[in-house]
């Protein structure tokens, strides 16, 4: 069954939720937010999209392509801790770099940010895996 209204809404909701998730991810640096909440928001966007377009033939293939994100996320999170060691400090030591960008100005890049991005990816990867398993169970894929 194709629910046209839901499909129209899902396209918008997906975009809004993923943008919001990225916003929450970066906001988490000094205020409430962060990788975990951001990842869940993005995952929520994906879920809405999957419910609307569940019988689309390419859907599960696209989702399978996203699944390795959980490994990439873990590597980023672990790597951010190891970076501290490589620079001669202790494990998980926070390192900060200031980068000058045209138009935006100076921004801070740090290993905690890399860690958060890692968590963000890992959460999305796990969400996608859960969705895929549920789709298999419902014989949607």
């Amino acid at each position: 069954m194709n629910a046209i209204l839901l499909q129209l809404a899902a396209r918008v909701i997906r975009v809004v939720m993923i943008i919001a998730s990225v916003f929450v991810l970066f906001r988490g640096h000094n205020q409430p937010g962060g990788g975990f909440i951001g990842g869940l928001l993005a995952g929520g966007g994906i879920v809405v999209y999957v419910i609307a377009f569940y019988n689309h033939p390419l859907l599960s293939k696209t989702l399978r392509a996203l699944a390795p994100m959980r490994v990439i996320g873990l590597i980023l999170a672990l790597g951010s801790g190891i970076l501290g060691v490589l620079f001669g400090e202790s494990f998980l030591h926070a390192l900060w770099w200031k980068i000058e960008l045209p138009l935006i100005g100076a921004i801070d890049i740090s290993t905690p940010l890399i860690f958060d991005v890692g968590v963000y990816f890992a959460v999305i990867g796990v969400m996608v895996m859960v969705i895929l398993l549920l789709m298999e169970d419902r014989k949607w894929s």
Binding site: S90, F91, H93
Partner: peptide, 9 residues
């Protein structure tokens, strides 16, 4: 003797 480490110093 005992080893102590502080994460992130």
């Amino acid at each position: 003797g005992m080893i102590v480490a502080q994460a992130g110093a």
